[in-house]
Simulated assay, not measured.
Amino acid sequence: MSDNDVQQLLKLSKQLLDAVDHKDWNTYTNLCDEELTSFEPESQGHLITGMDFHRFYFEMNPTGRPRQSTISSPMVSVMGDVALITYVRIVQAIDEHGHASSSSFEETRIWEKQDGDWQHVHFHRSLIS
């Protein structure tokens, strides 16, 4: 595993989170495989396959309120053309009354090298209680 791969995967993961925070569907779909799979709180324990489930959250409630994600304590493992990244994601947001809040999630993301480029193929996100 090269340091270059680690840095590139962390950069791509941050771009992915920025796309989610800014509801940038074009960037998100460029980084993700069309058959992206996921387990996340919104799916209530069900495995989600494909992009339609995620598109709903990009299109709903376009409030324009600021939000940002920080990757904390990342661990990266590269196994050939597959990479596993785990970290705690801290999300800071401003509500409609101007009050700041933070929430944290444990995230695992799997990237696969396809035609020379890393594509996001699976994630698991859990709310930290």
Rank of each mutant, 00 (worst) to 15 (best):
S103C: 07
W111H: 02
H120G: 07
C32Y: 01
H97K: 15
Y28C: 02
S102R: 14
L31D: 02
K14G: 11
D81I: 02
G98Y: 11
Q114Y: 01
D5K: 13
F56H: 13
H99V: 13
V91D: 06
S102V: 11
L12F: 06
I110Y: 03
Q15M: 06
V20P: 04
R109F: 02
D3L: 06
W111E: 01
F53Q: 03
E34L: 05
G116H: 07
T49N: 10
S73G: 13
S72D: 13
V76W: 01
P62W: 12
H120K: 05
G50T: 08
K11N: 11
D95V: 08
K23M: 06
V91P: 02
S13L: 03
R109K: 04
S38H: 00
Y87W: 11
R67Q: 14
E106C: 12
K11H: 11
R125K: 05
E34F: 06
D24T: 02
V78H: 03
A100F: 15
S129Y: 09
S101M: 06
F53H: 10
E59G: 06
Q92W: 10
S126D: 04
A83G: 09
F53A: 06
N30H: 09
D5T: 14
N61L: 14
K11V: 04
T86F: 09
D81P: 02
E42A: 14
P66N: 13
M75H: 15
V121K: 00
D24R: 01
V78C: 01
S43I: 00
M1H: 15
I48C: 00
D115I: 02
Q44M: 15
K11C: 08
K23R: 06
L84I: 12
G116K: 05
D24Y: 01
K113V: 02
Q44A: 14
L127S: 12
D117Q: 15
S69L: 04
D115M: 05
F39T: 01
A83C: 03
S101T: 09
S126I: 02
L9D: 02
Q114T: 01
Y28K: 03
E112C: 05
Y87P: 07
K23D: 07
S129M: 07
S101L: 04
N30K: 07
S2D: 11
R55F: 05
H120W: 03
R55H: 13
Q7M: 07
G64Y: 12
M79E: 14
S38V: 00
S72N: 14
H97S: 15
H99S: 13
V20W: 12
M75I: 14
S69I: 11
N30D: 09
S2L: 05
M75Q: 14
F123P: 00
V20R: 06
H124I: 01
S73T: 15
P66A: 13
I85P: 03
E40H: 03
S38W: 00
F58K: 04
T27W: 06
S38F: 00
L36R: 00
T37S: 03
Y57E: 09
E34M: 04
N30C: 05
K14I: 09
I110D: 04
M1W: 11
T29Y: 02
L36Q: 00
S77P: 07
V20F: 11
D3H: 10
S129H: 10
A93L: 04
T86I: 08
T27M: 07
H97L: 14
E59M: 06
G116T: 08
D52E: 12
R55M: 09
M75V: 15
L17C: 09
Q8M: 10
Q8R: 10
G116N: 05
M1Q: 12
S101E: 09
Y57H: 13
V88S: 08
T86M: 09
